[in-house]
Amino acid sequence: MAESWRRSQWRNGLFALPFLVTFAAFLVFPLIWGFWLSLHKVDLFGPGRFVGFDNYVKVLRDPQFRQALLNTLIFVATTVPTLVALGLFLALALNHLTRATAFLRGLFFASSVLSVTIVTLIWRIVFIPNDGLIALVFDHLGWAQIGFLSTKGWSLFSVGVATVWWCIGLPMMLFLAALQQIPVDHYEAAALDNANRWRVLTRITLPAIRRTVLLVAIIQVVMQFQLFGQAQLMTNGGPAGSSRPLVMYIYEVGFIRWEVGRAAAASEILFLIILCAAMIQYVVATRNQEGV
């Protein structure tokens, strides 16, 4: 009996084998290999030399790294709440079965299927000076033009606007799916009690979808920490590095300066930051849910 049970377990394990192989090949092995590279002074033309944590020290002391880290933290701190709040607002507004809402759902989600190249091209046309859409609007209103892509303080803002427009579709659809799982009986009972919209939102809707809110927030934190394409194609990290994110810094160190070890060290630091941010967010949200 025990032998047949073991055979059954091994056969069941075969179904998970393709996933385990893929997971090990594309996630576990690159993570271990990247950590090994981060401990060596290595480029693409030699075997490398073991230097311990010297690469980490150099990266942390690099002013460009600290600036890129600050840019990324500001970007995540502004875009993630915006995506969560705006996605929830759109889901609440479009949670009706009509032709108009179906069209608007498709319209808002359509941007998510575009490539980063197309997205940045569209928003460069919007933000470009003199002939851009915003420049024409400013001229019509008699306002002074702003170099959104070439001015400190505005370049990262411009990248954030393009990113929110590009990524808003996924949060909206996740919230819509969660809203449609809420039993109608809850809203009918609230209507009988003459509950206003704010009370229905805070006492019924938000508690029912709090796990989806947490999921969307974690997904967006992980995604936005990996900002690269929009910044590279819209501003190239400028002016003076004011819109350079961490991933772009890693790319420049590894593939322009050919300092692969330092790039790997920066990559491991980014991995730890993303992991810690997601875990902190999860723990805090879980404790809040338990306290409700």
Score class of each variant (00 low, 15 high):
Arg211Asn: 11
Val200Tyr: 03
Leu37Pro: 00
Thr286Tyr: 12
Leu14Thr: 07
Met234Asp: 01
Pro239Thr: 06
Glu268Met: 15
Gly160Asp: 06
Phe271Glu: 02
Leu192Glu: 03
Leu73Phe: 15
Trp258Ala: 11
Pro183Tyr: 08
Arg49Val: 13
Phe19Ala: 13
Gln9Val: 13
Ile274Lys: 01
Ile219Met: 12
Asp131Tyr: 15
Glu290Asp: 13
Leu20Ala: 13
Lys58Ala: 09
Phe175Ser: 01
Trp5Asn: 08
Ile218Trp: 01
Leu107Cys: 09
Arg99Thr: 11
Asp185Thr: 15
Ile122Asp: 01
Trp5Ile: 14
Glu259Ala: 09
Pro207Thr: 08
Val84Glu: 01
Ala190Pro: 12
Leu20Phe: 14
Ala135Asn: 05
Cys167Tyr: 06
Phe255Asn: 08
Phe15Val: 14
Ala191Leu: 10
Phe271Ile: 01
Ala278Glu: 06
Leu90Gln: 04
Ile269Leu: 14
Asp54Gln: 13
Val159Arg: 01
Tyr282Ala: 04
Leu17Trp: 08
Glu252Trp: 02
Phe75Ser: 00
Ser242His: 07
Gly229Asp: 07
Leu92Met: 11
Glu188Trp: 07
Phe157Tyr: 10
Ile182Lys: 00
Gln180Ser: 12
Val159Pro: 01
Arg287Ser: 10
Ser38Phe: 00
Asp43Ser: 15
Arg49Pro: 06
Ala25Gln: 08
Thr72Ala: 05
Thr78Ser: 14
Pro171Cys: 04
His96Thr: 09
Glu259Gly: 04
Leu39Val: 07
Phe50Ala: 09
Leu44Ser: 09
Met279Ser: 11
Pro183Val: 12
Asn71Tyr: 00
Met1Gly: 11
Ile182Cys: 10
Val42Phe: 05
Val213Met: 08
Asn236Phe: 12
Ala195Asn: 05
Leu92Trp: 04
Ala25Arg: 05
Gln224Met: 14
Ala144Phe: 08
Leu31Glu: 06
Val161Asn: 07
Arg105Asn: 03
Met248Pro: 02
Ser267His: 05
Val200Gly: 07
Trp166Tyr: 15
Asp193Gly: 07
Asn194Ala: 13
Gly160Phe: 00
Gly13Thr: 10
Ile32Glu: 01
Arg6Trp: 13
Leu20Met: 12
Leu94Thr: 03
Arg11Gln: 07
Leu170Trp: 11
Met173Asn: 05
Asn130Ala: 12
Val161Asp: 02
Gly261Leu: 07
Phe157Met: 10
Val42Trp: 02
Ala264Pro: 05
Leu215Lys: 02
Gln289Arg: 13
Thr151Leu: 09
Ala264Lys: 00
Ser158Pro: 02
Gln181Ser: 15
Gly160Trp: 01
Ser111Phe: 09
Leu27Pro: 05
Phe29Leu: 11
Gly261Asp: 06
Leu31Tyr: 04
Trp5Thr: 13
Trp258Pro: 04
Ile218Phe: 00
Thr101Asp: 06
Trp166Lys: 11
Ile146Cys: 09
Trp165Val: 03
Gln281Gly: 09
Pro239Phe: 08
Ala178Val: 00
Leu201Met: 14
Val76Gln: 00
Ala178Arg: 00
Gly160Met: 10
Val137Leu: 15
Gly52His: 03
Leu104Asn: 03
Val21Ile: 15
Lys58Thr: 06
Ile219His: 02
Trp165Asn: 05
Phe89Val: 12
Phe148Trp: 15
Val57Asp: 04
Ser8Met: 15
Ile204Asn: 07
Leu97Tyr: 11
Leu149Glu: 03
Thr101Phe: 01
